[in-house]
Design a protein around this nucleic acid. Structure first.
Lengths: 126, 126
DNA sequence: ATTTTGTATTATAATCAATAATACAAATAA
DNA sequence: TTATTTGTATTATTGATTATAATACAAAAT
């Protein structure tokens, strides 16, 4: 999977890597059991320090998205028993996004259309 | 309007203030023409430095959410001609939230229910 | 005339992101 | 067995950002 990083973004590199891998899993570009690049390989490919990639992988591991077996390298984790609820952080972000959307004149149905479009994009990549 | 700040959050104080005022406007708790506290008053109330509040107000002003007339203090801006589109930043955040929601087992209809609930909360406060 | 308000400047401390240079144990591959 | 690879760990340093602090000023209100 190709990573698109923006070094001028206010979002830290390690978080961009983490986010894109999460979105890669959700869109089916990355499936359970798939191997991720080694930390050194990915760091070299992107042109950053290995410890930055390490930070991304540590975070993904802690969140249960990946497993790191010492022999098999790093692989996408099987889908665990889902909790079927949004994290408090996501909920807070969603509240803010809905507020900004409302103030910019986006109707509820328009917002739902945008969500549908994003979800369709994700499914297309399966 | 009461501000609830989390000093242990990874979100900067100035951004929490900005976000809550935006949500306050969206929910109708703050209406066009309403006066915001002076920077010094708000800083004292919260117990932080005035320049931190200044940063929040500068940001809100730049985004068009508030006006600062020197005589009238700071007031909520009238709703401008809305662009009716999400910012690139909001769109990217929404993509990530939808990905995390999907991976945690939340269906599309469940997600829409959550959005509805948030929107209803906002409307109740009018 | 005094106070209040937003604005501006400069300095400092604290935290975080990212890099850099190693080092180690476990496992694989030669 | 030996050499390499992999994730992990440690320590140090640099740069950027956040927040505080101490003032100062012009414009407006009281």
């Amino acid at each position: 999977m190709l990573l698109r990083l923006d070094f001028k973004s206010e979002i830290p590199i390690y978080m961009q890597i983490r986010d894109q891998i999460v979105m890669g899993i959700a869109s089916g570009q990355l499936a359970a059991g798939d191997k991720l690049p080694t930390m050194r390989a990915l760091a070299d490919e992107i042109g950053i320090n290995m410890m930055t990639v390490n930070k991304s992988y540590q975070l993904l591991k802690q969140e249960g998205y990946i497993h790191t077996d010492r022999r098999g390298g790093t692989i996408i984790a099987p889908r665990s028993g889902a909790r079927a609820s949004l994290s408090n952080s996501s909920l807070a972000q969603l509240r803010l996004i809905l507020s900004e959307a409302k103030l910019s004149g986006i109707s509820k149905s328009k917002f739902f259309e945008i969500c549908e479009a994003i979800l369709n994009e994700m499914d297309v990549k399966q």
